[in-house]
Amino acid sequence: MANQRQIRSAFGPAWLCAAVLGLLLAGCATPPPGGVPVVDRNQRAPVSEGSYLVRRGDTLSSIAIRFGWDWRALAQHNGISAPYVIHPGQRIVFGNSRRATPAPGRAPVPAPAVKPTEPAVQVATVPDRPPLVTRPPEPQPPATPIKIQPVERSASGWAWPANGAVIGRFSSNGSLNKGIDIAGELGQPVLAASDGTVVYAGSGLRGYGELVIIKHSDTYVSAYGHNRRLLVREGQKVKAGQTIAEMGSTGTDRVKLHFEIRRQGKPVDPQQYLPRR
Rank of each mutant, 00 (worst) to 15 (best):
residue 152 E to M: 08
residue 8 R to Y: 06
residue 261 I to N: 10
residue 184 G to Q: 12
residue 38 V to F: 02
residue 96 N to L: 07
residue 145 P to Q: 08
residue 78 N to K: 04
residue 79 G to E: 15
residue 109 V to W: 05
residue 181 D to V: 07
residue 188 Q to R: 14
residue 114 V to H: 14
residue 241 G to C: 10
residue 238 V to I: 06
residue 88 P to S: 04
residue 116 P to S: 13
residue 73 A to E: 14
residue 64 A to S: 12
residue 48 S to V: 11
residue 118 E to L: 08
residue 171 S to D: 15
residue 89 G to R: 00
residue 146 I to N: 14
residue 239 K to T: 03
residue 181 D to H: 09
residue 122 Q to I: 09
residue 109 V to I: 12
residue 119 P to Q: 08
residue 154 S to A: 12
residue 29 A to G: 15
residue 81 S to M: 08
residue 244 I to Q: 10
residue 75 A to S: 13
residue 205 L to R: 15
residue 157 G to I: 09
residue 43 Q to G: 06
residue 67 F to L: 05
residue 121 V to L: 14
residue 20 V to W: 07
residue 34 G to C: 10
residue 151 V to N: 04
residue 92 I to V: 05
residue 173 N to L: 09
residue 137 P to K: 05
residue 150 P to T: 05
residue 199 V to A: 00
residue 24 L to F: 02
residue 65 I to W: 13
residue 106 R to K: 14
residue 104 P to H: 06
residue 232 V to A: 11
residue 95 G to W: 02
residue 86 I to W: 02
residue 228 R to C: 00
residue 164 G to M: 01
residue 48 S to Y: 09
residue 158 W to V: 01
residue 107 A to D: 11
residue 11 F to N: 15
residue 244 I to Y: 05
residue 231 L to P: 14
residue 276 R to D: 11
residue 134 T to L: 11
residue 59 T to S: 15
residue 166 V to A: 11
residue 170 F to T: 10
residue 43 Q to V: 06
residue 206 R to M: 09
residue 208 Y to P: 00
residue 3 N to F: 04
residue 220 Y to T: 02
residue 39 V to P: 04
residue 217 S to K: 11
residue 247 M to R: 03
residue 142 P to W: 00
residue 203 S to V: 04
residue 150 P to M: 05
residue 88 P to E: 03
residue 36 V to Q: 11
residue 190 V to E: 05
residue 254 R to S: 09
residue 266 K to V: 08
residue 225 G to T: 10
residue 144 T to A: 15
residue 184 G to K: 06
residue 67 F to W: 07
residue 211 L to K: 03
residue 197 T to M: 10
residue 119 P to I: 06
residue 108 P to T: 10
residue 5 R to D: 09
residue 30 T to D: 10
residue 144 T to Y: 09
residue 223 A to T: 07
residue 173 N to V: 04
residue 140 Q to E: 03
residue 248 G to N: 04
residue 160 W to R: 11
residue 204 G to P: 03
residue 75 A to W: 03
residue 104 P to M: 01
residue 52 Y to C: 05
residue 132 L to W: 03
residue 50 G to T: 02
residue 16 L to A: 12
residue 21 L to N: 15
residue 48 S to K: 12
residue 273 Y to H: 14
residue 5 R to C: 08
residue 32 P to K: 07
residue 143 A to F: 04
residue 272 Q to M: 14
residue 136 P to K: 15
residue 14 A to N: 13
residue 20 V to D: 00
residue 159 A to M: 07
residue 276 R to P: 02
residue 249 S to H: 13
residue 259 F to A: 01
residue 85 V to K: 12
residue 166 V to P: 02
residue 74 L to E: 15
residue 269 D to W: 11
residue 99 R to Y: 08
residue 192 A to K: 11
residue 111 A to W: 09
residue 87 H to G: 05
residue 177 N to A: 10
residue 82 A to I: 07
residue 61 S to P: 01
residue 13 P to N: 15
residue 22 G to D: 13
residue 213 I to W: 04
residue 265 G to T: 10
